[in-house]
Amino acid sequence: MSLVEVKGLTKKFGKYKALDNVHMEINEGEIYGFIGPNGAGKSTTIRILLGMLKATSGEVKIFGNDAWEDAVEIHKYLAYVPGEANLWPNLTGGEVIDIFLKMRGNGSKNKRDELIERFNLDPTKKCRAYSKGNRQKIALISAFASDAQLYILDEPTSGLDPLMERTFQECVLEVKNEGKSVLLSSHILSEVEKLCDTISIIREGKVIETGTLNEMRHLTRTNLHVQTKQPLPSIQHMKGVHHVDNHSDGVSIQIDSEELGTIIKFISDFGILKLESTPPTLEDLFLRHYENSNSVASTGGRGI
């Protein structure tokens, strides 16, 4: 069953088209990764899902209800972590977490205290005195202490130290194990790679790629590192071969996945001493999308 269903979503700010015909479907128990460069439209999409911005056209449904019309009803079962937690400077962290839990209407005191412990937060400090990472913890604690079906996390780990990032990942996996769904928008590709079942890449308001990491990998290149008895002849010209690098201990080649068989067959004639194959990382996939589109890149910027 799909918890989130977005069909043909378009959002315009004046003449500027921030989102163009976006589709998205998040199923129960699924962690959905949402990646794209700054200004691609991730946060706009999320704000529409939250019913804070009104879609110009298209259908946006969460739990089968309209995200704009039934926002309040939907939010009883939805937890959100913004990328930048702007909190009330004169309230303490503990107070803010309590207020947030009360606003959702559910959530447990024990869970709250346990998470404060796990994230190592001092709840007695005023929010103005917290660092960015600590403010982020407050948003994370209030989200994970509440009893939600869907978690929308918009770059939730910005400012967290590696230890806390691990705690965060544990929390995400825990809620997944309870059969809940997560929408994770992130720039930390290793995090997305580790956690997400489905990944969607957005650029300049358009979703340009959706699928599981494996499906995406299938469409792309594999990295090979080979060492042979006889030196390899120039294979640059062969179909499906990219980026040949000669090292002292062998050759690194990038190969289109569908040509992998042919090329291995060719190389094996030269007496393979060592063969290492690494799947492309999400970063490789991501960068490739942007290298390809350099010529058309404009407003979105190319930063990761």
Binding site: R47, L50, G51, M52, A71, V72, E73, H75, K76, L78, Y80, P82, E84, N86, L87, W88, F100, M103, R104, G105, I152
Partner: peptide, 14 residues
């Protein structure tokens, strides 16, 4: 302006 109403509207508050 300070991005604090999103705390209301991302929760069950009309």
């Amino acid at each position: 302006n300070h991005y604090r109403t999103e705390h209301f509207y991302s929760r069950a508050i009309s």
